[in-house]
Amino acid sequence: MSEQAARLRGKDLLGIADLTASEISLILDTAEAMKEVSARPIKKVPALRGKTVINLFYEPSTRTRTSFEVAEKRLSADTLNIAIATSSVVKGETLIDTALNLEAMNPDVIVMRHSSSGACHLLARICKAGIVNAGDGMHEHPTQGLLDAFTIRERKGRLQGLKVAIIGDMLHSRVFRSNVYLLTKMGAEVWACGPPTLMPAGIDQLGVRATTRVEEAVADADAVMMLRIQLERMQGGFFPSLREYFQVFGMTPERVRLAKPDTIIMHPGPMNRGVEIASEVADGSASVILDQVANGVAVRMAVLYLLAGGGDDETAA
């Protein structure tokens, strides 16, 4: 094991691209301790008591927002949610003005989801509060990448040397980018598969093996991660039909059999059953999709603790 970081270098978590391997390990190890908290009868520690966390969501989200909120409450933070429909954004307030207003209330952490890539960078530059990126456009979704890695590591004991196949819409996916950055930094072999119309330009330079043959991507994989196909993409002309997409790229029991016998099947949700994944696979014994959800809380507790709780003056978890 390489030397472990004792803390994160930055005040923010904007993307996996900014993290070192030892920072990633620190978050994953901290998440293990946090997972234990969630298993207790009283699922609460005082690590963030007296800290204020704002969840600022410019895009609808059930899973991620709920997961952050559960994580914040288990750490005893004071949380509040701002969703786009109830904020002044509909009146046309700029992101910077919203940020300055929130900043004036002196929060410790702002968790933000936004449809524009780089929106959290803008926020991070003007706020003293730590910014946690909960998904920015097509850029990154770092806590998803971390919870995916946590789930793989939990099952496989390691990330180094594993073959991970990621299948689906890579072009528009922030989950894809965060996973690629994380898994390649941790020494996994990442295969990326999907129609060429949904592959980002320069994909080879991302350090992945790109293929359009799903069988090749899945062969002997230790983990298979399906990405959600956003149904509006079909209208964009990226592929001819959902039916054909499932035929060519859908994860079927037959294709799963090409992977390692102990492979795990992952999906960041929400799933389109019968589009990117067959129900038999989603509900099958190899599926860890609900483990991912459970681990999301632990990983987000770890991130919040490391950014806002750890250290000098507070009781550790």
Partner: peptide, 15 residues
């Protein structure tokens, strides 16, 4: 510009 750098940043490309 559509290419590796825009891909990393998740910015839509102009080829």
């Amino acid at each position: 510009h559509e290419g590796f750098n825009a891909s990393q940043l998740g910015l839509r490309g102009i080829p």
